[in-house]
Simulated assay, not measured.
Amino acid sequence: MSKKKQEAGTLGDQLNADLLSKLQSKKTELKKQEADREESERLQRIEERKRREANKSFEELLNESELDWKSFKK
């Protein structure tokens, strides 16, 4: 039984070094692609928010204002 264990080894031992390095580089590449996609989505949300803000009417901006206009009356 111990002979079988020694022959089997670990998965890392069974894979050759070249294949292991290819898998690790692919993993790194996929992580970078995911980070780039998330950054792109974040920038797109910011741009969309700016467009909505620029297209608001005066009434919408006034309604969103936190100022109490009555306190400025004398």
Rank of each mutant, 00 (worst) to 15 (best):
S21H: 05
E39Y: 02
T10P: 01
L43G: 06
L43T: 04
K74W: 04
L62S: 07
D36P: 02
E39G: 04
Q24T: 06
K5P: 02
K4V: 10
E53D: 15
K27N: 08
Q44S: 15
K74P: 02
E47G: 12
L62E: 05
D18T: 09
R51Q: 15
E60D: 13
E29S: 06
E66G: 07
E34F: 10
E60I: 00
L67G: 00
L11T: 14
R52E: 14
L15V: 12
K26D: 11
S25V: 01
L30W: 01
E34L: 11
N55H: 14
R52T: 09
K3W: 05
S57V: 01
F72H: 01
K3N: 07
L61N: 13
A35C: 04
E48A: 15
L62D: 06
E48F: 14
L43H: 10
E47T: 12
S40Y: 03
D13V: 14
E7Y: 08
E64P: 01
E34K: 07
L43P: 03
K5V: 08
T28V: 02
L62H: 08
Q24S: 09
R52G: 04
S21P: 00
Q44I: 10
K70P: 00
L23F: 09
E7K: 07
S21I: 02
L11A: 10
S71T: 11
E7D: 13
A54K: 12
K27D: 08
F72W: 03
E53S: 12
E39S: 08
D36I: 02
E47H: 13
N55Q: 15
K4L: 13
E48D: 15
W69M: 04
S71R: 07
A8Q: 14
S40K: 09
R45I: 00
S40H: 07
T28K: 07
I46Y: 04
G9M: 07
S71V: 07
K50Y: 12
R45Q: 11
K70A: 05
A8K: 14
E59D: 14
A17R: 13
I46L: 13
E34G: 06
D13S: 15
E59S: 10
A54N: 15
K31N: 07
R42A: 03
E66P: 00
L62G: 02
A8C: 12
R45F: 02
S25A: 08
L43V: 10
E41I: 12
K27T: 06
N55P: 02
Q6K: 14
N63R: 11
E39V: 02
E60C: 03
D13H: 13
E41R: 15
F72T: 02
S25I: 01
F72G: 00
W69S: 03
R37D: 09
S2V: 07
R49A: 15
